[in-house]
Amino acid sequence: MQLDANTSMDLKIVSLISVGKHPTSGRARRAEQDGRAVELGLTLAEAGRGKQNLTVLHAGDSQQSALRSYAGMGLESVRVIQLRESADAVSPLTEYLRKHVPDIILTGVRAESGESSGMVPYLLAEKLGWPVVPRIANIVSIKEGVAEVLQALPRGQRRALTVRLPFIASVDNAAAEPRQSAFGPANRALMEQQQAGSETDTVRSEWSELPARKRPKRLKVVKAKTAADRFKAATAKPQGSGGKVLKDKTVTEQAQAIFDLLLEEGVLR
């Protein structure tokens, strides 16, 4: 991470955090992507003047113990905008950010609980009139108010972008893993509560929410025109009961077979 002298002094970063949900146990936890947003914020702040330049902000319940697992990354405090569970978080967040005007806002791509629509960074960007960079893997440098950012593309590919400060970025799973959360600092961190007036999310209260149903696998539907075809489709042996084994073939044939498969799968570029 490279920062030039000017930006490193007064680079103000806000990492937005939410309460995560463990995929197998469903328990509240530090969310994977939000943890990465804090990690990136910490790295940026440490490259500059120090941790005090990073504000970790949550809108919700300050009593939620999962927030402590963010604090365990070495934060002295977590700022919490106290909200009821049904409240809409975007407008109090916007209000806060308008007042404090950071240079960089980091969020996860999608929350692990609730609607998890991934709209928060976009809505904040729209309201603040800032650019939004989705799915970043790293911030490479910040020079003269312009940040060079690496955006994560599928399958480990990266795209380089530049964007002028201030901006909002959502942090992808490809970013550096969050540091370990230690029990001691987590337990001692301060939860700075702020009250905020907010409206109830009335649209959402009309929705019904249930545990996810398993989606049926798409079947290969055979649109047969003749009886013979339908018969054949119904009785055909399922494919692939064990792979092909090339034994007692020459080395050339074996290599050719592998090569053909790689070519067919399109992994040779």
Binding site: R29, M73, G74, R179, Q180, S181, F183, G184, P185
Partner: peptide
Amino acid sequence: LTMETGSTPNKGAEVLD
């Protein structure tokens, strides 16, 4: 090291999480 600095090496942090 684990409870104050959070520096359990390698897979330690993941296992504890």
